[in-house]
């Protein structure tokens, strides 16, 4: 396989509070290859968004990277200064946020917001910038691009705003785009349009995508590979169909079984008791132990090592005897 575009190794991120430091991400390792769409799933509070913010150097002020590295095309991003980060953001790695209304500036025209990256990072003249912006607006499916160039966000519908946000993420020719719940705020027919657009962009622009979602159906629609996060840990990783058909980690199994579905009518849904532990409640051992129906003594004390089954990896003591260590 080719060199990964992005490689995160043993990343730990902690929050500092008055009463001490609390680890929010532990030992996060994964790679994203060129032209690949990688999904990250998990419940709220599992560290999905924090991971993406760490990759973009946008951690909250009370959070810091304790150890580990984030390599983008061989450069370690962790040690970058603020100025160096700015040259990466937008032009090499860019981000799409969940809520298109709050991520656009209501006082600036659509055209100005999309072209800002070009003005900042390139030396094109204004006329060229406008032409490139309008061409991209057409590519992401915005109708009447010339007219919308001068429009303001409030004049657009939710789906069109999300297309604008996607255009902003793409205009700098970033080869890695991180999309944090990009379709959660959209209606299902509009969501399908946007998901089709992501798949098309992967083909035409060779863009790699990290796609964060809590919706397995959406992840299955766009992703090649999926990473399952729980309480700041990656618990399972593998090709999407493989994970959906044969989930190994009890958390992944529970999540997939609790998806409501026509075929489960009349019978109670599977549930995972309890909830994701808050930052201060996390301790040693497996993070899922309190909610797991298959827990053993060892789970209370020892954090499970990663086990590899082909390209399917799982961190659970149930599989301790099998397969190869990572």
């Amino acid at each position: 396989m080719s060199q990964p575009l992005l490689s995160v190794q043993n990343l730990d991120v902690s929050f500092t509070f008055q009463d001490g430091d609390y680890a929010a991400l532990k030992n996060i390792s994964f790679s994203v290859y060129p032209k690949e769409i990688v999904g990250i799933v998990g419940e709220s509070g599992c560290g999905k968004s924090l991971t993406s913010h760490a990759i973009l150097g946008m951690l909250p002020t009370n959070a810091m990277i304790k150890k580990g590295s984030i390599q983008y095309r061989g450069t370690d991003l962790v040690s970058l200064t603020n100025e160096e980060w700015q040259s990466i953001r937008g032009s090499a790695i860019s981000m799409i946020f969940q809520e298109p209304m709050t991520s656009l500036n209501p006082l600036l025209t659509i055209g100005r917001q999309i072209s800002e990256v070009l003005k900042k990072h390139t030396g094109f003249c204004n006329k060229e910038i406008k032409e490139m912006t309008i061409a991209l607006m057409k590519e992401v499916g915005l109708p009447r691009a010339e007219e919308l160039y001068r429009a303001y966000p409030h004049q657009l519908s939710g789906g069109m705003r999300q297309r604008v946000v996607i255009a902003i993420a793409l205009i700098g020719e970033a080869d890695l785009v991180i999309a944090d719940e990009p379709t959660t705020a959209l209606d299902v027919t509009i969501q399908l349009q946007i998901l089709e657009l992501f798949r098309k962009l992967k083909q035409t622009r060779n863009t790699s995508l990290v796609f964060i979602s809590h919706d397995w159906g959406v992840i299955r629609k766009v992703c090649d590979r999926v990473i399952v996060m729980y309480a700041g840990h990656i618990v399972e990783e593998g090709p999407i169909e493989e994970i959906l058909q044969h989930p190994k980690h009890p958390y992944t199994q529970g999540l997939i079984q609790s998806i409501p579905d026509y075929k489960k009518r009349g019978e109670p849904l599977h549930t995972i008791p309890g909830r994701v532990p808050a930052l201060r409640e996390r301790r040693g051992g497996c993070p899922f132990v309190d909610r797991c129906s298959l827990r053993m003594d060892i789970c209370q004390t020892t954090y499970p090592e990663g086990k590899k089954h082909g390209n399917h990896q799982v961190k659970c003591h149930l599989y301790a005897q099998e397969a190869i260590n990572i």
Binding site: E43, S44, H214, W216, G254, L255, S258, I259, P260, P268, L269, H270, T271, I272, R275
Partner: peptide, 14 residues
């Protein structure tokens, strides 16, 4: 709600 909690509430409503 998250999907695991959603399942709990749906069961409760039933």
């Amino acid at each position: 709600l998250d999907v695991s909690v959603q399942a709990q509430i749906l069961n409760l409503l039933k």
